[in-house]
């Protein structure tokens, strides 16, 4: 990206960081065919763009944030403005990838802009992860998988347990440690 593009870059969109990179590395490594893939909460479109560039999969990227879908589309990713998986048909996706907002946030300190929506997972860090786990099964193909990025700040065990309640078994397929958190990519199967 040139300097001119950076200057115009949206301040309201989460830009790719270590978590995005780990999710993109893992998904591109594990997708092997011409899967149909959904990336939920695509933000800048980085993860979806890497999957599209590095695999034979067709990728659809969705986000709630109008600034994010515009930036992702500018990266040549097929985009839809959506609330999680609500506007997608039953059983269509071979894989769904999600780097959710996961930081536990004191309700007193919520700052209420698009960046908060991209980062904050509410008091327990799972305010977006839980509804995602409740609804993602509907759009997955019979052998479909979910790649979900989880931080130790949110609690991997709690997410695995919640996924189990929705009928998923979870395997940690990648992790990376940083000074303040460990990031894990869970692969969920039914």
């Amino acid at each position: 990206m040139g300097l001119e593009d950076r200057r115009d870059q949206e301040p309201d969109v989460y830009q790719p960081a270590e978590d995005s990179q780990l999710l993109a590395d893992t998904a591109t490594e594990r997708l092997t065919g011409d899967e149909l893939v959904l990336e939920v909460g695509t933000g800048s479109g980085y993860v979806a763009g890497r999957i599209a560039d590095e695999t034979a999969a067709r990728v659809i990227a969705s986000d709630l944030n109008p600034h994010a879908v515009r930036q992702a589309r500018a990266e040549n990713v097929e985009t839809v403005r959506a609330d999680l998986v609500a506007p997608f048909r039953d059983g269509v996706f071979d894989a769904v990838a999600f780097n959710p907002p996961y930081l536990p946030t004191d309700p007193e300190n919520e700052w209420d802009d698009w960046m908060e929506h991209a980062l904050s997972g509410g008091e327990d860090g799972r305010a977006v992860i839980d509804p995602f786990l409740e609804t993602v099964g509907r759009v997955l193909a019979p052998d479909g998988v979910v790649y979900l990025l989880v931080s130790s700040l949110t609690g991997v065990d709690a997410v695995v347990e919640r996924a189990g309640e929705e009928g998923f078994s979870a395997v940690a397929v990648a992790d990376e440690s940083f000074p303040f958190e460990t990031l894990t990519v869970l692969e969920l199967h039914r």
Binding site: L64, P66, R70, R73, T79, V80, R81, A82, D83, P87
Partner: peptide
């Protein structure tokens, strides 16, 4: 469909 992007929010 806004700027080529379908807005499927309720």
């Amino acid at each position: 469909i806004e700027d080529g992007i379908p807005n499927l929010l309720p």
